[in-house]
Design a protein around this nucleic acid. Structure first.
Lengths: 103, 103
DNA sequence: TTTATTGTTCGATAATTCCCGAACATATTG
DNA sequence: CAATATGTTCGGGAATTATCGAACAATAAA
């Protein structure tokens, strides 16, 4: 599958795009799943979801700068880019994670 | 003009919708304008912008629960619903305002 | 090498969103 | 009442987004 994945440089991670990436319930849930763990296999972010749909959402998160995607074998390890997010938008990830699932 | 405006109850203010409302540069700028002041006349939120476009964006902010709209005469005073936002999503508004205009 | 697994890419469709002009409603002012 | 100012509503057109099946590429395993 994937050879390389383009990630925005930290200076290109913009708030509106990040907020948009987080504004979808599906992607918000993905972020919640990622919060606890170091990295997660991409398809595990959307259990029972069509693969192409998972790809769609993970791509939006990645291109917004919210996540990092590291290919390994035929898997994709996805993680939160907290290093970037916590510097550029301190508290944002915490705020989002603090909100309950149904809020 | 307007007689009444529907505002979501605090328990109906949901994070995805709030984040979506904030994910647009135009609306983000509106929120920045609102941050300092107690209330702002609606059309002052979109200087030089078509009125119907201002209405469009202010409606999305209002229906998401981000702003309050109070009609007075033929004006609309718009304000941030910090009372609700700061309780439901503590830190969110601060995070957004802390980010520079170009980030 | 054949098979199975993981994930992407490519349509296609339905739904949403954005932008704005024109017409309208409401309220103030002359 | 007539004229003006503020903001909404309606309509349409362009652009984006969401969802997903089908075909495909790449890797790992048998």
């Amino acid at each position: 599958m994937p050879r390389t994945y383009a990630h925005p440089d930290p200076e290109d991670v913009k708030l509106p795009r990040v907020l948009f990436a987080l504004s979808d319930p599906v992607r918000l849930e993905m972020v919640r799943i990622l919060a606890d763990r170091e990295a997660v296999n991409s398809l595990d972010l959307g259990p029972g979801m069509p693969k192409s749909t998972v790809t769609h959402h993970t791509r939006i998160l990645r291109e917004a700068g919210v996540t990092n995607t590291r290919p390994e074998g035929r898997n994709c390890w996805i993680s939160l880019r907290r290093d970037v997010l916590d510097v550029k938008f301190p508290g944002l990830v915490d705020v989002v994670l603090a909100a309950g699932t149904d809020t």
